[in-house]
Amino acid sequence: MADAPTLARHPSSNTDPAAGQPVIELEAVRKVYRTGTIEFEAVRNVSLVIHPGEYVAIMGPSGSGKSTLMNILGCLDVATSGRYLLAGEDVSDMDEDQLADVRNRHIGFVFQQFNLLPSLSALRNVELPLAFAAVPREERRRRGRLALERVGLGDRLTHRPNEMSGGQQQRVAVARALVSDPALVLADEPTGNLDSSATEDVLELFGELHAQGRTVVLITHEAEVAERAQRVIHIRDGAVASDGLTGGTR
């Protein structure tokens, strides 16, 4: 996509002097839930480094703590103890407003349920993160259009979510994740609600993003989805069970 330079280039790509700085750096992260007197340790002592340009799949059965880990990675929740550096920023002790800002600047979310606002057009949905960043309206329009063209929906700008297929909706969601040019694209079971051809479609898109140097972290429980990634991290009982390269796409 030659006409989308801002989207094709990663902010911390190799030309950056801080190229070696990891996108994600977890140090001895724990998350403990307390219900009355019962304590439950959902994430125990996870340390993890993900570098720019990596395509990582986090796998694990339900109840393994991978959702909790994903919430922490997405700055939707904070760890009970340990340290989390996102693109070099320590988010461990941030308050709600600061976390919202960090999410807005550094993370592009893709959800299993797409989570598009039904009353807004595809373009308005994609613009949403930029609106929270107070980007001027015209600039938002322009970048939103580029992002939708990037995911192959340049002709669907004014369509509402209910006028599109599941695969198309998820591609709108991917465009929304890309529009603010984040350090990290975080996808939570992105293919969970899609049929096999739409799944293939979306996974191909993630592959392309990876090829363009974006950092993609994908949470899934499907092996064939995880296979497409470059690195797979297995989570079991709140801890990293295995972490290795797949020898996959790259």
Partner: peptide
């Protein structure tokens, strides 16, 4: 509720 959650995930602060 879901919309609010989404807005927050995308960077909406409690104030917004």
């Amino acid at each position: 509720t879901r919309e609010i959650g989404l807005r927050k995930a995308l960077g909406g602060t409690p104030t917004t």
